[in-house]
C-alpha cells in the first residue's frame, strides 16, 4: 500500500517536504518508523513524533492505503 509521509521543521530541511512510500498491507507505525530510519539514517537517535491523518498515534497503530503520516520534531514554539 502507498502512504504519503510529510516532514516538518529541520526534518523537512533534511529530507524534503513529502514523499510516498510503499508498505505491506496493515503495516504498523513501528514498522514505518523502522523503515524511515533505515532510509534516512540521520533520523537515527533523533527525537521525533508521528501523527497519522493529523492525530498522534501509538506505535502499534495499523495504517491503511492513502493514510498521511506526519513526522515532526518535539514542540519548540511559544
Amino acid at each position: 500500500m502507498k502512504v504519503e509521509v510529510k516532514y516538518y521543521a529541520w526534518i523537512r530541511e533534511e529530507i524534503g517536504e513529502k514523499e510516498t512510500l510503499e508498505f505491506n498491507e496493515g503495516a504498523t507505525v513501528r514498522e514505518i518508523v523502522k523503515k524511515l530510519v533505515e532510509k534516512h539514517t540521520h533520523l537515527a537517535g533523533e527525537n521525533f513524533l508521528i501523527a497519522v491523518n493529523g492525530r498522534t498515534v501509538d506505535m502499534d497503530t495499523c495504517l491503511n492505503e492513502g493514510d498521511v503520516v506526519s513526522v515532526f520534531p518535539p514542540a519548540g514554539g511559544g
Partner: peptide
C-alpha cells in the same frame, strides 16, 4: 497555558543570524 504551548504544540522556531539559521530547541 504558555508552558503547555511550549511543551506540546507542534510549532517550531528557526532563528536567522549572520552565521545562518538554527532551529530553537525550546
Amino acid at each position: 497555558m504558555i508552558d503547555e504551548v511550549k511543551k506540546r504544540a507542534p510549532i517550531w522556531k528557526k532563528e536567522i543570524t549572520a552565521k545562518g539559521g538554527r532551529w530553537v530547541k525550546e
